[in-house]
Amino acid sequence: MNGRIANIQKPLRELVAEHRKSFDPHNPRDYVDHYFCAQESRINEKGDVGTFTDDQLIRNLSDLYVAGFETTTTFLRWAMVYMIFNPEVQTKVQAEVDWAVVSSRWSAVADQSKMPHSTAVINEVTRITYFVPFGVPHCTTEDVPFKGYTIPKGTEVWPLLCQHFVSPAVWGDADVFRPERFLDEKGQVIQSLADEVQPFSVGRRACLGEPLAKMEVFIFFTAIMQHFTLSSRTTPSREPALASVLAPKPFKVTVTPPC
């Protein structure tokens, strides 16, 4: 195994080993325990673990953490850029967080239903930056007719998410940062439109890191807005650095307590 990969996977292997020591098949605690249950079920049924190996578990965990980490950090950097450019939006988010999160505790996922504007901002930053330009690649299992063409069986297909995120047919003024596009006249999230923002792909084979990344994005973004106001003496670039994940170019930010 590549030494770099081995170093990345080392803490995950230690986590799995610790879980196995305290594993109770009658009280699974999390994904790792449920995976152990699947291993036991396969052994009881077939006499071996089949594809449910410990190495596969480590790879799955790597996907969860890497996908969740990379997308979260990139989103937060873009969110800072757009809050710097749109201080009035930043003020609205801060006001909503102050109203929804009573007392001095940190925001939590359970607060999201009370924070439609913050949710709209998250959706709009994700949409307009399309920092994950391609969806998870898939492979056709049969010949597929599509708009007068035939995609042969066995063809690798990469969904072009960025094309959808800037489509005028869906968004109208697609080049404009306008979070309120996701809100109805009562200020509630238009779920059908929010569902159009799918950076993790859709279906059974969507990115494994999606649930983790979405929770992290909401908690970290609202926590930053809860405790800080972002500004800059220099203008950040809205042109991304070209890579598989389109992150913003380095920029400077001034952080002050909210008013």
Rank of each mutant, 00 (worst) to 15 (best):
Q226M: 08
P240Y: 06
L242I: 07
T254F: 03
T222Q: 11
R233W: 02
A223D: 11
P248Y: 04
H227P: 14
K249Q: 12
M225L: 12
T235M: 03
P250K: 00
T234F: 00
S232R: 01
P236S: 10
R233M: 05
L242T: 05
P248S: 12
P240H: 13
M225P: 10
M225Y: 08
L230N: 04
E239Y: 03
I224W: 15
H227Y: 14
A223M: 15
P250D: 02
A243I: 03
M225T: 13
T229C: 15
T222C: 15
T234Y: 02
S231Q: 02
P236W: 03
S232K: 02
K249C: 11
A247W: 04
T256D: 13
A243M: 07
A247F: 06
P248V: 09
Q226N: 10
S232Q: 08
R238F: 06
T256L: 11
T235H: 02
S244D: 09
A243R: 04
K252G: 09
P250N: 07
K252P: 08
P236I: 04
T254C: 07
L242W: 07
T235E: 02
T256Y: 09
F228D: 13
A241K: 00
S232N: 12
P236Q: 11
F228P: 06
K252M: 09
V255R: 00
L242D: 06
L230K: 05
I224E: 12
S244E: 10
P248I: 08
K249T: 14
L242S: 07
A241H: 02
L230G: 04
E239Q: 14
A241G: 06
Q226S: 14
M225K: 15
V245L: 03
A243V: 03
V245F: 04
S244V: 10
F251R: 00
S232D: 05
T256V: 10
P248G: 10
T235Y: 00
M225C: 15
A223I: 10
T234H: 00
P240M: 08
P250Q: 09
K249G: 09
T256E: 12
P248W: 05
P236A: 11
Q226L: 11
L230F: 06
S237R: 01
I224M: 14
T235R: 01
I224F: 12
S244N: 12
V245G: 02
F228I: 10
V253G: 00
S231C: 04
H227T: 12
T235Q: 03
L242G: 06
L230R: 05
T256P: 13
Q226E: 13
A247I: 07
T234R: 01
L246S: 05
A243S: 12
A241R: 00
L246V: 04
F228N: 14
R233L: 03
R233Q: 07
A223G: 11
A223S: 12
A243G: 07
K249F: 10
Q226D: 13
A247R: 09
A247H: 08
E239R: 04
S232V: 01
T229Y: 08
T256W: 13
H227L: 15
T254Q: 11
R238L: 14
S237N: 08
H227G: 09
Q226H: 11
S231A: 05
Q226I: 15
T235S: 04
V253D: 01
Q226P: 14
A247M: 12
A241Q: 03
K249W: 14
K252E: 06
